[in-house]
C-alpha cells in the first residue's frame, strides 16, 4: 500500500489508489487507480455492471470501499479521521435519477445545501440559489416542485443544487440515462458550458458525442478495472485494447454517431 504514496506537489485534485469493492459475492471494483487534475473533464465509459457508478460512489464514500484510498487534493477521503461531511460538501454529485427533494421547490432544493451545510442565512442562500438556477437556465422555475418539472429540467436543478456548494469536483452518474431522448440535449448543454468554465468533472456516461467533444480524457472500464485511458482523439480512433474496440463498435451501433 505504501508504494504509491502521493506527494503534495503532483497537483492532482482527485487521486484514487487501488480501490476494491464487493457486494456480497459480487466483486465490483477490482483495484481501480486514477487521478484527475484541476479543471479536467474525464468521462468513464464501459458496459453496464462494470463498476462505473460504484467508482463514483466510492469516491465520495456513499459506498465505502473494502480496500484502497481516495484523496481530494491532499486530504484523504478514505481516512476515518476526516470529517466526511465536510469533504462531501466539496464534491458535487449528480444522480441518474436526479433525486431532487420531492417536498421542496426548485429554489429550496438548491438553497438547502448552503443553508444546512454551510450555515448561510436564508437571504444569502436564496440569492446564491437564484444565481445557480440562472446558470442552468431555470430562473423561471424557481417555485416549481420537482413533480412539475420535466426530467431534463429536474436534472438541471440537481446540477444547480450541486453547484451551489461551490464544489472542487463534480461527479456525474449517468446524468442523461433516465431522460427521454429529446431532453438529453439541454442537460448536456449545461455540462458542456460547465466544462468550458473550468469545472473539474468526472462523468459516467454513454454519450459518446459529449465524451469526444468535451472530455480531456476517457476511461474505459470493464470487469471492475480500468482497461484503457487516453485523450479522446486517440481513444476513439486508435484504441489499444481489443475489448475497447468491441465496446466502441457496439455503442456506435446503439447510439449512432
Amino acid at each position: 500500500m505504501n508504494e504509491q504514496h502521493p506527494s503534495r506537489s503532483d497537483g492532482a485534485i482527485l487521486r484514487v489508489e487501488g480501490l476494491h469493492k464487493s457486494y456480497g459475492d459480487n466483486h465490483v471494483l477490482r483495484g481501480v487507480s486514477m487521478q484527475m487534475r484541476r479543471g479536467e473533464t474525464v468521462v468513464v465509459i464501459g458496459p453496464s455492471g462494470t463498476g462505473k457508478s460504484t467508482l463514483l460512489r466510492c469516491i465520495n464514500q456513499l459506498s465505502v470501499p473494502d480496500r484502497g484510498r481516495v484523496w481530494l487534493g491532499d486530504r484523504e477521503i478514505t481516512c476515518k479521521k476526516q470529517n466526511i461531511n465536510c469533504l462531501r460538501a466539496e464534491i458535487g454529485f449528480v444522480f441518474q435519477n436526479f433525486n431532487l427533494f420531492t417536498h421542496l421547490t426548485a429554489l429550496a432544493n438548491v438553497r438547502i445545501g448552503p443553508m444546512k451545510v454551510k450555515g448561510l442565512k436564508k437571504a444569502a442562500a436564496t440569492e446564491l440559489a437564484m444565481d445557480e438556477l440562472a446558470r442552468v437556465g431555470l430562473s423561471d422555475k424557481a417555485d416549481a416542485y420537482p413533480a412539475e418539472l420535466s426530467g431534463g429540467q429536474q436534472q438541471r436543478v440537481s446540477i444547480a443544487r450541486a453547484l451551489a456548494m461551490s464544489p472542487q469536483l463534480m461527479l456525474f452518474d449517468e446524468p442523461t440515462s433516465a431522460l427521454d431522448p429529446e431532453l438529453i440535449g439541454e442537460v448536456l448543454d449545461v455540462m458542456v458550458s460547465l466544462a468550458k468554465e473550468g469545472m473539474t468533472m468526472l462523468v459516467v456516461s454513454h454519450e459518446m458525442g459529449f465524451a469526444r467533444s468535451v472530455s480531456d480524457s476517457i476511461i474505459f472500464m470493464e470487469g471492475g478495472v480500468i482497461l484503457e485511458q487516453g485523450p479522446p482523439e486517440e481513444f476513439f480512433t486508435a484504441p489499444k485494447e481489443e475489448r475497447t474496440r468491441v465496446f466502441l463498435s457496439k455503442i456506435t451501433e446503439l447510439y449512432g454517431e
Partner: peptide, 23 residues
C-alpha cells in the same frame, strides 16, 4: 421515502441527523 433522498442529502454534505430532520 425513496433511498435516493437520503443519498442526495448525504452527498450534499449533510450529516445523517440533518438529512433525517430536513429531508
Amino acid at each position: 421515502v425513496p433511498q435516493g433522498q437520503m443519498m442526495a442529502a448525504r452527498a450534499l454534505g449533510m450529516s445523517k441527523l440533518q438529512a433525517i430532520r430536513s429531508i
